[in-house]
Design a protein around this nucleic acid. Sequence first.
DNA 1: TAGATTGTTAATCGATTAACAATC
DNA 2: TAGATTGTTAATCGATTAACAATC
Lengths: 221, 221
Amino acid sequence: MTGSGNKSAAASSPPPKAVVGRLSLYLRELQHLLRDGHETTSSTQLGRRLGVTDAQVRKDLAYFGQFGYPGIGYRCEELVTQIKAILGTNQEWPVAIVGVGNLGQALLGYHGFRRQGFRVEAAFDISPDRIGKTFEGIVVQHLEEIPITLAEKKIRIGIIAVPGHAAQKVANQLVSSGIAAILNFSPVTLSLPETVPVVGVDLAIELEQLSFAVVNQAPNT
Amino acid sequence: MTGSGNKSAAASSPPPKAVVGRLSLYLRELQHLLRDGHETTSSTQLGRRLGVTDAQVRKDLAYFGQFGYPGIGYRCEELVTQIKAILGTNQEWPVAIVGVGNLGQALLGYHGFRRQGFRVEAAFDISPDRIGKTFEGIVVQHLEEIPITLAEKKIRIGIIAVPGHAAQKVANQLVSSGIAAILNFSPVTLSLPETVPVVGVDLAIELEQLSFAVVNQAPNT
DNA sequence: TAGATTGTTAATCGATTAACAATC
DNA sequence: TAGATTGTTAATCGATTAACAATC
C-alpha cells in the first residue's frame, strides 16, 4: 500500500515557492473535479488541465508525501483533504483588511475568500468618513485599534489595500501588532522583517505583463 | 559610449516570464526613485530595494539592451522611458471589464491602472440590475455588446471579474471578439488558444500561500 | 494477466550568481 | 589617477523532464 495519509516521506528540504503556488492550483482543480463527480484523477489529467507535465504534478506532490495509488491515480476527496492540511486551510483563518476604499470594500465582500477558509473579521481605515460604517457586517475601525483588535480576534493575516504612500506605515503597524503575514495590494515594495512573509499583488503590473505579451506578439515557440 | 537608447543588443532568445515580471518591478521602483529626486541609480541600489542581487538586475536588463553607464549606473528617467517602451506602456491601452460585481466595480474605480497607462473604457455584465448603470463614467453594457464595443473602442485587453462558473463562457466571447490578452480574476483555469496570453489572479490562492508560510513558520534558512 | 499509473532516480535544461575586463 | 559600476562570460545552482521499476 502506497498512499493515503502517509506523511512518512515528508520533505527534507523546504519546497520552492513555485511548488506551493502550484499546490494551490491542484487544490482548485481537484475541487472542480469533485464537483463534477470525479472520484479519482491522475497526474496526467490534472497536468493537462493546468498546462503542466504529469511528471511535474507527481514531483510537486512528492515534496509532501505519497498520496497516490499506482495503477489508480489519486482519490480527489482524499487529495483535497491532504493539500488543505499542507496549505493550512483545513482551519479557518480570520483576516483583517486595512484600507476600505474601492478595493478594500470589494475584498470585504469577496466570497471567494470564505470558500477557501478565510474570513474577514476586521477592517481599518484612517478616514473619518469611513470609520464607524458597516460593510458586510464589519464595522470599520480606526487604525489605532489594530493592536487590540488583532489580539482579541486572534488575527494573523493582514491585507493592505491603502494608497501606496501609506502602505509602509500600515505595514509597520501590523508588524508591531504581531501580524504573521501580509497580503499587499499597494503598488510599493514593503520592507519588513524576514519573519513576516509578504505576497504582493500589483494590479497594474499584471496588466503590464499582458501589454508586453501583446506588443511582442506571437511568442511563437 | 555604452548606454542610452541603444537597442542594438536586442534579445535573441525570448526573455523568460520571470524576467518580464521583474522588469515591471524595476519600473515601479525607478518611478519611486524619480519622485524622490534621484537622477541616477545602480544595479546594487535597485536590487537591494527589491531583494534581488545586483547581478540579476544587470542580467535582466541585458535581455533588452544596454541602458547603463559604466562607472555611473543608470539614469532613472531614461531607464523608465526604456522599460515603458519594452513593456508597451509608452502607449495608452484601453481595456474592458467583464463582470461589474464587487470586484469589477473596484477595478473600474482603481486609479493605479490609469497611472500606468491603462484606461477602462468599457464594462459588461449580464444582470439587468447593472446594465445601463454608470460607474466612474462608464455605462455598463450587456455581454452581447462585446464584439461591437471592442471593435469600436479598439480594446485589446479584457479583464474577467465574473463568478467562476461564467468565466470560461465570457473568455470564449472575448476571444471570438478578437481580444488579444486576458487578465482573469475568476478562480478557474481558462482554456484558451495559445495565441491569447492570460494572467490569472486568484485572491484566495494568494492567501493560501500565506497560510502555508505561517503554518510552516520560520523557513529558517 | 495486461494495462495503467505511481514515486523516484538520473539526465536535461534553464536561471541565478560570481567574477572580471572594459569603461567612465 | 583611483573608485565605481557596467555588460558579459563562465561556474553554480536549482528546477523540470524523461524514464522506469514497483504496484495495483
